[in-house]
């Protein structure tokens, strides 16, 4: 199945794209998708412990199971205000 990945701020710069599509295995979690990306783009690996994650524009835990067509966002530490 296929999901859309959205990346923001420095994560986007490191990967070089704001949006990607990736195939994931049925039953894959948000965390598994992150590890797949970190293997593909080693420079983002240092964000392992500091990212937040969202699925379909709602904050989500890393153990959330993905569905076909989901939009998964990886968010570096925030700095609004």
């Amino acid at each position: 199945m296929r999901v859309t990945v959205k990346l923001f701020a420095r994560l986007r710069d490191l990967v070089g794209a704001a949006e990607l599509t990736r195939d994931v295995a049925p039953g894959a979690t948000v965390g598994a998708l992150w590890h797949q990306l970190a293997a593909e783009f080693p420079s983002i690996g240092s964000y392992e412990r500091s990212i937040s994650t969202a699925v379909n524009a709602d904050y989500a835990r890393r153990d959330q199971v993905l569905a076909d067509g989901d939009e998964v966002a990886f968010l570096p530490p925030v700095s609004g205000g």
Binding site: F8, A9, R10, D13, S50, I51, S52, A54, A73, L75, P76, P77, V78, S79, G80, G81
Partner: peptide, 19 residues
């Protein structure tokens, strides 16, 4: 989920605060 990028004398940097 908002981020600021600071453009300063000599460079620029993404500011990262709280997870």
């Amino acid at each position: 989920p908002i981020w600021k990028r600071e453009f300063f004398e000599g460079g620029d940097v993404w500011i990262e605060g709280a997870t």
